[in-house]
């Protein structure tokens, strides 16, 4: 199942619908990295609220997406990680280092607005 990527001003939003296959994740990565430059976006928000399981591949892909997007000149925020998922990830050592996180989409947008204000 492909992940839809929505454009909201200077931000791209990708919302995970359910647990994704590895191929879907790879597609998402390519899509985001291409579109972030195409739309001249300043940031990407990946919403994982619907994911109740986060395996090491998904977690690594999220980190790679964040790092690739930084290299493409934008910022990434992962939002909506469930409490149980968060603790399970940390126990597996998947801490998404160097990637911004926020409680939900609203918080993520607020975080980015704050950030855009200070960098403008």
């Amino acid at each position: 199942m492909e992940v839809p990527i929505l454009k909201q001003g200077a931000v791209l939003i990708a919302t995970f619908q359910a647990a994704l296959s590895d191929a879907d994740l790879n597609l998402l990565r390519m899509g985001l990295v291409q579109q972030v430059v195409k739309f001249r976006s300043r940031a990407v928000i990946v919403d994982v609220t619907a994911m109740d399981v986060m395996d090491s591949f998904a977690s690594r892909t999220l980190r790679e997406i964040a790092h690739m997007i930084r290299l493409r000149g934008a910022e990434t925020v992962i939002v909506g990680i469930q409490p149980e998922v968060a603790f399970a990830m940390v126990q597996l050592g998947l801490t998404l280092e160097g990637v911004a996180t926020a409680l939900d989409l609203e918080e993520g947008l607020a975080y980015l607005n704050e950030k855009f204000k200070t960098t403008n």
Binding site: V79, I81, A86, F87, M89, T95, T101, L103
Partner: peptide, 12 residues
């Protein structure tokens, strides 16, 4: 330490 990291994943 894990709790601190997990909280960060929730944006806190």
């Amino acid at each position: 330490v894990q709790t601190v990291e997990a909280s960060r994943l929730l944006g806190a």
